[in-house]
Amino acid sequence: MGEFFTAAGDFLVNNKQEILVKTWEQFYISMSALLLGIIVAVPVGVLLSKTEKVAKVVMGITSVLQTLPSLAILALMIPILGVGKIPAIVALFIYTLLPILNNTFIGMQSVNKDLRGAGMSMGMTKFQSIYLVEFPLAIPVIMAGIRLSAVYAVSWATLASYIGAGGLGDFIFNGLNLYQPEFIIGGAVFVTILALLIDFILSKVEKIATPKGLRVER
């Protein structure tokens, strides 16, 4: 056990600069994919909540994409976009879509119909009803999907190392190739810490974005 902690300490001391660089790469890749997922999935989820027949088709397609192995999608990106961070971000973007899309759809569908009717009776247009009534009430459910996708993205970004995108996966795969457990454990620990930190930050964002009345209720 003493040897393990010594090796872990040596890993931290000898790779301080590289740990910072790899952690930033992991953060950049995963958060870029998450941001793209939010930009695409939230508006689409809102639209799908108004067209349930189309929603079934779109949800089916995204569910199929979600079942594809992440390494397979990364490999498919190489002939199209080459290697590096861009194909990794695109591949992770595909994986972030389903939780955000699904939760946006469910959140919008779960809004009380009486509240929608009250808004319309006050003279609101459909857009105003969505923007001022339905979407704010659906925020807790939508944020749950975003937080789930964020954790997925940080975890899956580890595999981006296979296509030269960098990140903490470099430590893990180098450790496997060189038979150095401290590299594997060090990389895995920092991935976990990063995922927990991002989830914590998003939980605070969720609290701020949730309407005050819902916060008290929750």
Rank of each mutant, 00 (worst) to 15 (best):
A7E: 15
A8G: 09
G9K: 09
N15T: 02
Q17N: 04
Q17I: 04
E18Y: 06
W24N: 04
F27G: 06
F27H: 13
F27N: 07
F27M: 14
Y28E: 13
I29K: 14
M31C: 05
L34K: 09
L34Y: 07
L34V: 07
L34N: 06
L36C: 12
L36V: 11
I39Q: 06
G45N: 08
L48N: 06
V54I: 14
V64E: 10
L65N: 02
S70H: 07
A72E: 10
L74H: 05
M77K: 08
I80R: 06
G82E: 12
V83P: 02
G84E: 13
G84D: 06
A91N: 10
I94Y: 03
I94D: 01
I100L: 12
I106M: 07
G107C: 07
S110W: 05
N112T: 09
K113C: 00
D114N: 15
A118W: 05
M122L: 14
M122N: 11
Q128N: 08
Q128P: 13
S129K: 07
I130T: 14
I130M: 10
Y131D: 14
L132H: 07
P140I: 09
R147W: 13
S149F: 10
A153Y: 11
T158L: 00
T158Y: 01
S161M: 11
I163E: 13
I163G: 12
G164H: 07
A165V: 11
G169S: 01
D170K: 02
N174R: 10
G175Y: 02
F183T: 03
I185P: 02
I193A: 15
L202Y: 01
I208T: 02
A209V: 15
T210M: 02
K212N: 14
V216E: 04
